[in-house]
Structure formats: structure tokens, C-alpha cells
């Protein structure tokens, strides 16, 4: 995901918390459902060929229903779509309006590379 794309998603969340999620979500204060969702999204992004029914069971176990699971799949896959359009065509959103904490996460790396580092 290009950083401008990511930063646009911060909404009303605390800027430093969003920065933690962007840099390494495992260090952020997230609840069990959020962690399961991000774990699933990470697998879908980096190792889709290894996914199995067990991955959906992991989401069910923390309380997601079938429609919510479909929404998570669609959203994670959609972000893989949008970020590639942005990266391949050099499209980005201006950094104006984003907090200092968030911008400092990304000057030398994208969210994608940050996640790659986090799972190594």
C-alpha cells in the first residue's frame, strides 16, 4: 500500500496508534478480533497460496460471521488492488493534512515493506 493511501484511512484514530499499526501492527494495542483480522489479511497478502479452510475458522473463532468474513476477504484483496494501481502508475495522495507521527513512519519505506520486515 502506498503511504498516502494508507494514511488516508486513519479517520479519527489516534495518530500514534495508527502509526504503530502501519509500522508493525503486532506492537499496537488491538483486541483479539482485530488481531485475527490482520493476521488473516497478512496471510492473504503475502502467502495466498497457503490459505486453507483453517484460516476462515480462525476468524469464526473470534466471532466473525460469514458475511463479515467475506467483507474482510474483499477488503484485504481490494487493498491489494488499489495499492498496486498506485505503485505501478506512480499515483499517490498528497501528504498534506497527515500527522507528523504518521508521516515519520514512511519516509524511507512503504507500508508493504514495513509489514515484510515485521513478519521476518
Amino acid at each position: 500500500m502506498s503511504h498516502g493511501e494508507f494514511l488516508r484511512l486513519q479517520g479519527d484514530s489516534d495518530a500514534s496508534e495508527v502509526a504503530k499499526v502501519a509500522n508493525n501492527w503486532r506492537t499496537a494495542e488491538l483486541d483479539a478480533k482485530e488481531r485475527a483480522m490482520l493476521e488473516f489479511s497478512e496471510r492473504l497478502t503475502f502467502t495466498p497460496g497457503l490459505m486453507s479452510p483453517d484460516d476462515l475458522d480462525g476468524l469464526r473463532a473470534v466471532g466473525f460471521d460469514e458475511a463479515q468474513i467475506l467483507a474482510i476477504v474483499a477488503a484485504a484483496a481490494y487493498r491489494n488492488f488499489v495499492s498496486r494501481i498506485a505503485e505501478l502508475l506512480g499515483v499517490d495522495l498528497p501528504d498534506e493534512g497527515y500527522s507528523k507521527e504518521l508521516l515519520e513512519v514512511f519516509p524511507s519505506k512503504t507500508a508493504t515493506s514495513a509489514v515484510e520486515e515485521a513478519i521476518q
Binding site: 490459505m51 484483496a77 494501481i85
Partner: peptide, 19 residues
């Protein structure tokens, strides 16, 4: 090309995640 690359990365992930 870029749109197709992005779309197939989307669609194959959906398919892989849902069987």
C-alpha cells in the same frame, strides 16, 4: 496492464481465501 495486474492480484487472493 497495470489495471489487469492489480485486478488479478485481487481476484486470485479472493479465490485463494475462499476456496
Amino acid at each position: 496492464l497495470a489495471t489487469a495486474i492489480a485486478y488479478q492480484n485481487h481476484a486470485m487472493r479472493v479465490a485463494a481465501a475462499l476456496g
